[in-house]
Design a protein around this nucleic acid. Structure first.
Lengths: 119, 119
DNA sequence: GTACTTTACTACATAAAGTGTAGTTAGGTT
DNA sequence: AACCTAACTACACTTTATGTAGTAAAGTAC
C-alpha cells in the first residue's frame, strides 16, 4: 500500500485532500492502536507488540515505518514515541475513549429492548 | 472478521474495552471514510460508492452491515444516514480535518529542510 | 402491461494485506 | 569467546479487499 501523504493522491481522494490521506492512514490495521498505545511515552518494539494483541512483527515493522515516514512517530534509544504533531493527533482522538462508553450503552439499551419484547 | 462490540473480546483487547472495540472497527478499510461521507445526511448506496473512490460493492455492502450492526448508521428510504450516536462519533472526529492541515504543513517543512541541505 | 432503465445489491475469481513461525543480526552479559 | 536478549527480516499461509459480471426489484415510457 502506498503511503498516504496529504497533498498527493491517496485512496479516497485523487486531489490528496489532507483529511482523506489521514482517513486512509488511520484506516490501516493497528495504526490507531499503535498511536493509542504510545500516548504515554516511549515503548519498545516488543512492548508495542505485546500491547497490540501480538500483532505480527512483519506488520508492526511496516506500520512503524509508515508512521515514521508520515511524521507521526519517531525512534529514540528506548523505542518509539509520538512526535509533537503525533501527540497532537492523539489529543484530537483522545475523546474517542469517552464516546466509546456511550456507544457501549447503546448496545445495552438494545438488548434491554429485546428482552422486553420477549415478555 | 468478527464484529467489534464493546464489552466483547475484540482485536486488541480480550476484555472488550470499548475503546479497543472502537479502534478495531475504525481501523477497517473505508469505515472512517463512510462515516465521514455521511456527515451531511443521507446518501444512497451508489452515491456512497462514488464518493468513496469507487469502493467495491462487495466491501461497501459489508461495511454498511457492520456499521448498522454497531449502531452507527441506519437505513432509510433514501439510503443510509448516521444514527444519533453515529453523528456524535462524527463530531468527535470532525477536528481531524483541522489537524490534517497542520499535518500537511509538517511535510512542507520537511521538504524545505531537504532543499536547504542541498544548497 | 410489457419492455427498458436504474438502483441495489450478490457471486466469484484475482490481487493485496495480515499472520505466524522460523530464522538472522547486532548489542550487551558471563 | 560463548551465551543471551531485543529487534527485526523472510516466507509460506490465510484473510481481506478489488473488479467485473450478473441478478432482483422498483420505477418510467409507451
Amino acid at each position: 500500500m502506498s503511503l498516504p501523504i496529504p497533498g498527493s493522491a491517496v485512496r479516497g481522494s485523487k486531489t490528496g485532500k489532507p483529511i482523506m490521506a489521514l482517513l486512509d492512514l488511520l484506516g490501516r490495521t493497528w495504526c490507531l492502536g499503535v498511536i493509542w498505545q504510545l500516548r504515554q511515552g516511549t515503548l519498545s518494539f516488543s512492548e508495542l507488540q505485546l500491547r497490540c494483541e501480538n500483532i505480527s512483527p512483519t506488520l508492526l515493522t511496516k506500520r512503524l515505518k509508515e508512521l515514521q515516514q508520515t511524521n507521526l512517530i519517531e525512534k529514540n534509544l528506548q523505542g518509539y514515541q509520538l512526535t509533537a504533531i503525533g501527540f497532537a493527533l492523539f489529543q484530537v482522538i483522545a475523546p474517542l475513549s469517552q464516546w466509546s462508553k456511550l456507544w457501549q450503552l447503546s448496545f445495552e439499551e438494545q438488548s434491554m429492548l429485546q428482552e422486553s419484547e420477549n415478555e
